[in-house]
């Protein structure tokens, strides 16, 4: 691991067939970092759902568009103490995401769809979205354990 904390960088295309490849790589990475099996499954689910949103909504289901994913081991502060976390940043050049449309729906309303963002929020300790220089950037944080981190760490 370098001084930047960079663990892994992936450049993939907006192809649904690639999702299983990313899942397997990420599962191995999370396990290597010491996350529990349940935490590994949570991280994999969140990233898979985020990539699905990029493919379906950012790129309108079109294949062949670029998605950049970086995985870093970062320091976070919690309760005045230092801890470590996995930071995942996904970037795409798709259309601006309307977060209100992706914010999910009441779970009592049993119908297909609208669960992806709910899964991401439930699985990760922190979720940040921003639009920067015409690109969508989603930052996801997963602590090894413990309470939610102070973002911006």
């Amino acid at each position: 691991m370098g001084r930047s904390g960079l663990l892994l960088k992936l450049e993939l295309q907006s192809n649904p067939e690639m999702l299983c490849v990313v899942r397997h790589a990420l599962a191995q990475l999370a396990e290597t970092l010491g996350f529990s099996r349940a935490e590994c499954r949570a991280v994999v689910l969140a990233v898979d759902e985020a990539l699905t949103n990029i493919i379906r909504h950012g790129y309108g289901g079109e294949e062949g568009h670029p998605i950049h994913a970086s995985f870093r081991w970062i320091a976070v502060r919690r309760d005045g103490k230092h801890g470590r976390a996995l930071e995942i940043v996904l970037e795409d050049s798709g259309k601006k995401i309307d977060c209100a449309k992706l914010c999910g729906r009441p779970l009592e309303d049993v119908r297909p769809g609208g669960l992806g963002m709910h899964f991401i929020n439930e699985c990760m300790d922190a979720v940040e979205f921003r639009r920067k220089l015409g690109r969508n950037q989603l930052r996801l944080i997963k602590l090894l354990d413990g309470p939610k981190p102070e973002m911006g760490a």
């Binding site: 899942r23 898979d48 759902e49 049993v110 119908r111 297909p112 769809g113 669960l115």
Partner: peptide, 16 residues
């Protein structure tokens, strides 16, 4: 081994 929200949506549609 794995199911995402689109899989869940398929199950919900089948249930309906």
């Amino acid at each position: 081994r794995y199911m995402d929200s689109s899989g869940v949506a398929s199950l919900v549609e089948g249930l309906k």
